[in-house]
């Protein structure tokens, strides 16, 4: 009886741990696309940087000029961004979170520097570029008729 109870507890714990593990890898492994935007905001309300060095999560800095937009892929939700204005020499360091269910977000560098919130917004692409389509051709093995036009030089 005792072992039965113990086993029930151990097994229940493991099931919970299993589900938790899925959740953990889901959260920590989730990738998000981050667009980094260095354009003026609201028609000049906040000006773009002329030359700025941006580093995310301690990665190597990337240089942006005015009107630059770049894309990077981030894993996980909480990230740290360091912006260094090469002209004024000011350095801003901020931490931001990407919501779990967002696939693609845009980060406005000028907003980061000016301290305006939110500087990270959801990004909705207008039209997905058309990709080369392959048809969902399945392999039915012996059931499919062979096609005589499959003449490929071996």
């Amino acid at each position: 009886m005792n072992t039965k109870k113990k086993r029930l507890i151990v097994r229940a714990t493991l099931v919970v741990a299993y589900v938790l593990a899925i959740a953990v890898v889901f959260v920590t492994g989730k990738e998000h696309t981050l667009l980094i935007d260095n354009m003026e905001v609201d028609e000049g309300r906040i000006a773009a940087f002329e030359e700025v060095l941006v580093s995310i999560d301690g990665r190597e800095s990337v240089e942006y000029y005015a009107d630059d937009r770049d894309m990077t892929v981030l894993k996980g939700q909480t990230h740290r961004i360091v912006i260094e204005d090469e002209i004024s020499g000011t350095k801003v360091e901020r931490e931001f979170k990407i919501p779990l269910d967002e696939d693609m977000v845009i980060l406005y560098l000028p907003k980061v520097a000016s301290g305006e919130e939110p500087y990270v917004e959801r990004f909705v692409p207008l039209e997905l570029e058309s990709m080369p389509e392959d048809d969902g051709e399945i392999d039915t093995g012996f059931l499919s008729d062979p096609s005589p036009d499959a003449e490929v030089v071996p």
Partner: peptide, 11 residues
């Protein structure tokens, strides 16, 4: 679900 790296494999 865009789970990448080792986590993706674990998932």
């Amino acid at each position: 679900w865009r789970i990448s790296g080792i986590e993706g494999l674990l998932f």
